[in-house]
Amino acid sequence: MATGGRRGAAAAPLLVAVAALLLGAAGHLYPGEVCPGMDIRNNLTRLHELENCSVIEGHLQILLMFKTRPEDFRDLSFPKLIMITDYLLLFRVYGLESLKDLFPNLTVIRGSRLFFNYALVIFEMVHLKELGLYNLMNITRGSVRIEKNNELCYLATIDWSRILDSVEDNYIVLNKDDNEECGDICPGTAKGKTNCPATVINGQFVERCWTHSHCQKVCPTICKSHGCTAEGLCCHSECLGNCSQPDDPTKCVACRNFYLDGRCVETCPPPYYHFQDWRCVNFSFCQDLHHKCKNSRRQGCHQYVIHNNKCIPECPSGYTMNSSNLLCTPCLGPCPKVCHLLEGEKTIDSVTSAQELRGCTVINGSLIINIRGGNNLAAELEANLGLIEEISGYLKIRRSYALVSLSFFRKLRLIRGETLEIGNYSFYALDNQNLRQLWDWSKHNLTITQGKLFFHYNPKLCLSEIHKMEEVSGTKGRQERNDIALKTNGDQASCENELLKFSYIRTSFDKI
């Protein structure tokens, strides 16, 4: 039985969820670079991206490699990797027998973001014989899940209580170790020597080791999670996991709180800001991140802002960003909400898709409305799209047979046209069989910064309504002859009103 693990408890099935942008060198404390989270699957090609990484700022997932063999891993080693800020997950990587050479110096898994409450997941690794993470000293947050690894031993010899604050939620089941077939031998045991430290858990006094050649490092209890030197002297209180010299914040392997210019500090002093819960960055760093993602459509890219001495992905609820200094300031009234469309555009074809934009005031991208039916549609669209004030790209209304009016965009005031449909149009209306009105132009103002209007096959939309939009939106004169079809717009509506004058002759039985 794995020490510190839980057996036999019912657990939810383990679901495996399925960018080499360097964020800056980590400095003297770390020998390499800070790398983003990685999802490495199918083959070993991307694994080489770990070569210079000291910190993975995010998670590391290595999974679904069915053609790899043990010899493929023999020359692979990433000794610079010290810390993973989120979680480490391995799933069905064939041929991998140990992690001792792959990650010989991995010391800390912070667990800032977890995989279903777990910071370390080893699942269905069919050839893994031992973990071998002999320098792993601290899992700051989260638990361990090690399950269905039929060859995995050296679990009962690990004292997880020396690595985690609590072992109650560890789930370590259905491994070879369960069948008591392992016969784990710690260093020196074969020669009758006791080389590794022994600890007591559940009444068992057991030597602690990761492999037959690597003991588990056990520091004096007084050192807590700070770690200790090879001689057993406690590291500085700002260290986490390990250090090369005692009581020196510049000799830590990793930091308990924050890293700044080669030393570990309790908090980031001005003019620095907390970033990702582990390091200090200056304003320029946060500003660069903001600008890199301002026009990016890459998933996970955030326009970072500053709030409460932190550089964070977005302002919290009730705050909006001051564009001059990136500071989050309290909103006066309802907060603006910028919604970034991942692929640059979004099609609204149902109430469900409209709900995804609920509360958005600025759309960074283009909207395509293609709704053919739905219950209580006008009210639903207004509830979900009615706060949109600005669209950076274009607005396209296409084959939306259920629409009679666009009044559900009740606050839309600006279409920038930074991206144009077919390279020309910022407003595009095609084949809307029941569209009769755009907006009530006596109450609604709309500016279209650039781009043209396109109207074709809107049989109940009168040309007068379209011409009014040209005047109000500032697009009059931009359109070419064929942009607004004269014969297919309003051709099934009563669009022309003329005053009919009647004269009559009164007659009676005795007068003409």
Rank of each mutant, 00 (worst) to 15 (best):
N242Y: 12
L260H: 03
L152V: 05
P249R: 01
A156L: 04
S213Q: 12
R297T: 08
C328F: 01
L76K: 15
T320L: 06
L64M: 11
V305H: 03
M65V: 05
H302T: 13
C264G: 00
G188Q: 10
S213R: 09
P330Y: 11
P334F: 09
T140Q: 11
T211R: 14
L128S: 01
C228A: 02
G318Q: 15
C53E: 00
K191D: 02
M38P: 01
I306G: 04
S284P: 03
D247A: 07
N195M: 11
A230F: 12
T194L: 15
N309I: 02
D165Q: 05
V55Y: 04
C196M: 03
G300I: 12
K217A: 15
L90V: 08
P246R: 07
R298K: 04
N179F: 06
S225W: 15
E168D: 05
K148P: 01
R162E: 15
I158A: 10
M83Q: 08
R113W: 04
G241S: 08
H59K: 04
G333K: 03
C264R: 00
H226Y: 15
K80F: 04
D177H: 15
E71V: 15
C268S: 00
P36A: 09
P31H: 00
G142K: 01
R74Y: 08
F115S: 05
R145A: 14
F123I: 15
C228Y: 03
K176L: 04
N257V: 01
E57W: 03
E147P: 01
L90R: 00
I56L: 08
R256E: 05
A156G: 10
E180V: 09
L90T: 06
H307R: 02
D75E: 13
Y319V: 03
R141Q: 15
F283L: 07
G111R: 00
K100A: 08
V305S: 11
E147S: 13
L76E: 01
D178C: 09
T211L: 10
S98G: 02
Q245G: 05
T267P: 00
T140N: 10
T329M: 11
C280Y: 00
C280R: 00
H290S: 08
S225D: 04
A119E: 00
F116L: 10
L136V: 06
S161F: 11
N325S: 15
H307T: 02
C243R: 00
R145L: 11
L233P: 03
S237W: 08
N308D: 05
C335M: 03
C311I: 02
I158S: 05
D86C: 01
W278E: 02
V55L: 02
D277I: 04
K148H: 15
C301N: 02
C286H: 00
C153W: 02
P104G: 01
E151W: 07
C153A: 05
F283D: 05
C286T: 00
L233R: 14
C280T: 00
N242Q: 14
D177P: 15
V173M: 07
R69T: 06
L47V: 05
Q276Y: 09
A190H: 11
V200L: 04
F283N: 07
C243A: 00
R256P: 01
L106W: 02
K80L: 07
R297A: 11
P316F: 02
L44H: 10
T189L: 10
S324W: 14
V167A: 11
H48W: 07
S317H: 02
R110G: 09
I122T: 04
G262I: 02
E97Y: 08
P187A: 13
T189Q: 08
L128N: 01
I62E: 01
H127S: 15
K129L: 04
L106A: 00
V281K: 01
V121R: 01
F73T: 07
C335I: 03
C234I: 03
Y94F: 07
N150D: 10
C328M: 01
P104T: 01
R256Y: 07
P187E: 14
R92L: 14
D75W: 05
V55W: 03
Q299V: 08
E168M: 06
L81K: 00
Y171S: 13
D86P: 00
P336D: 07
V218K: 14
E180P: 11
I122V: 08
M321L: 02
H226E: 05
D277S: 12
N242G: 08
W210V: 05
G32A: 09
L174N: 13
F285C: 04
I172E: 07
K80Y: 05
N135L: 02
V206T: 15
N295P: 03
L99I: 08
L240G: 08
R297V: 08
S98T: 11
G333V: 03
P197I: 13
N42Y: 12
N179V: 13
V121S: 10
E97R: 12
G232R: 03
C209I: 02
L63Q: 08
L63H: 08
T189R: 07
C209E: 05
S143R: 06
K191I: 12
D184W: 14
P336A: 06
N135M: 15
K100H: 15
D39T: 08
L120D: 00
E231P: 10
K251Y: 14
V144T: 05
L88A: 01
D248G: 02
T85N: 02
C331K: 07
G227E: 03
E33I: 12
N105P: 00
S296T: 14
S323K: 06
R110F: 04
L120M: 12
P270Y: 07
E49I: 13
C264V: 00
E97K: 04
L44G: 05
V93P: 00
K176P: 09
L50Q: 01
G37L: 05
W160D: 01
T194C: 02
A230T: 04
P334H: 06
K292S: 11
C186N: 02
P220H: 03
T267L: 04
Q299L: 07
F258H: 04
L289W: 02
E71L: 03
F285S: 03
W278H: 10
L240E: 03
T267E: 02
W278C: 02
I84Q: 00
R162Q: 14
Q299A: 07
S143N: 09
Y273P: 02
E49Y: 06
L152C: 10
L88M: 08
C315S: 00
D72S: 07
Y273T: 06
Q287A: 15
L50R: 02
V126T: 12
I139C: 02
